[in-house]
Design a protein around this nucleic acid. Structure first.
Length: 309
DNA sequence: AATTACGTCAACCGCTTTTGC
DNA sequence: GGCAAAAGCGGTTGACGTAAT
């Protein structure tokens, strides 16, 4: 594959940069009369000192008569979120679902608005999952700490006591994580007017979020049953009469999404097993953890332990 | 009023995919 | 099937406008 035509056109002294009204007029006049045909041939025929690529971009992104300009509506915004959670940065595919919007416009809107919004609400804009992959790092941190104690001789390696200690640590951390998520969801509820969403997600139909946070803040222990480690029900912030594009894909896609996406289940959970640590075989099935299967092998690798100590 | 920082978006760049021979 | 040209696509840049200091 050779260089792009526009690259070569630089040498020919073709014009770059913003289009003038005169150039726009020439391009529109030509295309309305003849169609665009070959973009490469068009500039010469239309009397433009531009490369074909530049003409195509100007036409498709700005001059096309069916372009819808102006702010994105909440419905369009929701559609973009839905589709992005499924398709990722496939801007042209997303644009094909939004009549009158160009891929460039959607891409810009995503980068300047939606991405920031997701980040602000604590979601990874690429995965649409909560940003803190808490349990993935938690178990490593706990194990590292225990290993360090063990390596320094401060902790006798006793499967039962170690397991109990680990479980206590993890329970405490899970409580913190739960609080973090409740606070994040409370933030979403207040900013996105998503009545009922939080209770729907947490399954606490009769317990207001703030009350739950307060309760947990004062709780001595953290009942494991309260950890929101299972979100079986779909979550919707749309009216029932609004169909979602997501439903079209939901049968074949299983990608995790942020909770303000329509009809979107919260992230699936991955089992975290402590089976390699003595008798501690407690299995935690929690949010968004995706350690590689061999993590424990590498953890106990000699070089790793040397580096760690 | 001047300067700086930040946000937005049109346009470009270069890579990939599609099309035609 | 192989090749080259054209078209499509997504990431990035930079000019411009506006807000903050």
């Amino acid at each position: 594959m050779g260089r792009s035509p526009c690259g070569a056109d630089k040498i020919n002294g073709l014009k770059k940069g913003p289009w003038t009204p005169e150039e726009d007029h020439k391009l529109v006049q030509y295309i309305e009369k003849h169609g665009h045909g070959s973009w490469r041939a068009l500039p010469k025929l239309a009397g433009l000192n531009r490369c074909g690529k530049s003409c195509r971009l100007r036409w498709t992104n700005y001059l096309r008569p069916d372009i819808k300009r102006g702010k994105f509506s909440p419905e369009e915004e929701q559609t973009i979120l839905d589709l992005h959670s499924i398709l990722g940065n496939k801007w042209s595919a997303i644009a094909s679902r939004l009549p009158g919007r160009t891929d460039n416009e959607i891409k810009n809107f995503w980068n300047t608005h939606l991405k920031k919004k997701l980040i602000h609400l604590g979601f990874d804009p690429m995965t649409h999952r909560p940003r803190t992959n808490f349990f993935a790092t938690l178990q490593q941190l706990v194990v590292f700490a225990k290993l360090r104690e063990f390596a320094e001789g401060r902790l006798p390696w006793d499967g039962h006591s170690s397991a109990a200690g680990l479980q206590a640590d993890v329970n405490q951390a899970a409580k913190l994580q739960y609080l973090q998520q409740l606070q994040m969801l409370a933030s979403i509820a207040s900013s996105a007017d998503t009545n009922g969403l939080i209770n729907h997600i947490t399954g606490t139909d009769s317990i207001p979020v703030q009350e739950e946070i307060d309760h947990l803040n004062h709780a001595e222990t953290f009942p494991e049953t309260q950890i929101p480690c299972s979100f079986d029900q779909p979550v919707s912030i749309k009216n029932d009469n609004q169909s979602s594009i997501f439903t079209e894909f939901s049968q074949r896609e299983n990608s995790p999404r942020s909770p303000f996406l329509s009809h979107s289940p919260l992230p699936p959970f991955t089992d975290i097993s402590f089976g390699n640590l003595g008798d501690a075989s407690t299995s935690y099935s929690c949010l968004g953890s995706d350690l590689p299967p061999s993590w424990s092998d590498s953890l106990f690798d000699g070089q790793f332990l040397t580096d760690f100590a």
